[in-house]
Design a protein around this nucleic acid. Sequence first.
DNA 1: GACATCTAATTTACATGTAAACTAAAATAA
DNA 2: TTATTTTAGTTTACATGTAAATTAGATGTC
Lengths: 148, 148
Amino acid sequence: MTEKISYLPSMGRLLNTLSEAACSIAEDYLRPHEISLAQWVVLSALWRQDGLSVSELSEYSSKKAAALSRLLDRMESKGLVSRSAVEDDKRSVKIHLTEKGQGLSHLIDMYRHVNGILLSDLSDAEKEQLFPMLERMLKSVQVKSGKS
Amino acid sequence: MTEKISYLPSMGRLLNTLSEAACSIAEDYLRPHEISLAQWVVLSALWRQDGLSVSELSEYSSKKAAALSRLLDRMESKGLVSRSAVEDDKRSVKIHLTEKGQGLSHLIDMYRHVNGILLSDLSDAEKEQLFPMLERMLKSVQVKSGKS
DNA sequence: GACATCTAATTTACATGTAAACTAAAATAA
DNA sequence: TTATTTTAGTTTACATGTAAATTAGATGTC
């Protein structure tokens, strides 16, 4: 029997594992409502402002238009959203909540549930340190990779 | 006394964004060598200990056997690894590095490059706080979700 | 106005992740 | 021994992400 290999001190891996754990918590929370996390992200934008274009949803969600296009197909099939043409610019498409989509708007606070679990073992002082630290990390990465 | 920001930050989203940024840095680093991050994870296990079984790779990489099975198909096609039968247990399959796979072993330190960028704007004191804090966060999540 | 270029959205090809069904072999219970 | 259960790995169906090509419509320059 070979010995189990241990992990290397990689921040990337740690972030990855944490991110996946957070996604799992969210997916578990959403499962009874039969929507995915990706779908929740789109809905959470529309709950705040209905009738966004695909481009606007793309910017909000940090998803590529290609990914959104197909995601919206499924959400349309499930009766969560509808597409409508834009008069001023016929290339553009606006996305609207259906009644069914609107009816799930209480899920907008889902992230609080996730936060609650993620932060449950940290003191208030630690939480106050952690957020700015991670945000600075993000900023430095975005500067290096030239992304806004 | 300045007023607190009303915006409630989502730790899940922050972790997600950071994780994706870290993956992008890694993918950029690996692109010239024509391997993906998923493939690097498998190789990084084998560079440390060749001849691991699919189960062992699964445990090391936190990937499901199903995902690994197909990933190994592609890595085999690309000539990075080979499969071999196990005498003692004919259900089991051991994975071996090919010369080509072994030839990329200098990439084992890739995570340091990623760490360097991620941590570039944090002080030593902050780094010393950050790792344990995130590890505690991970631990509390794993307890709640019943995963080891 | 006509042509070149840019933009919005979609489509396609492919890599990757999950869950569930399947196969073969090992382990356990009867 | 024989039957049942567990385990290891694969396969399939599907959701999601990326990059690159495509289409249609808007914009800019001459």
